[in-house]
Amino acid sequence: MTRSRSDLVWIPTFAILVAFAVPWPLWGVDRVVAGLPVWIWWHVAWLGLCAALFALFVRSGAWERGMGQRPTAGAAGTAEEITDQAAAEAADREVERR
């Protein structure tokens, strides 16, 4: 397990990202900015922020740590490797049982 305590901050972060993708603070506001209602710009900017933070989540390795995996670089962690690893673990268990 390489899950670190600082990764826990991602849980409230995701909650806020989901909750405020809806521009609640602009409820009823009808200003038009640059040709579109201002709350549409909020949404566009917010989804841009989401994409940036999602990329950071992935790059920081929290993606793997959140599931108890070791962060992998590049193309590692393919479906084939996982299958092989599972087979190896099953073989180990078989040996232990004997």
Binding site: V58, T72, A75, A76, G77
Partner: peptide
């Protein structure tokens, strides 16, 4: 690979 899932995740929004 997991890299495929990760890239898709960040591009999705």
């Amino acid at each position: 690979s997991a890299a495929t899932l990760k890239r898709s995740f960040a591009l999705w929004p």
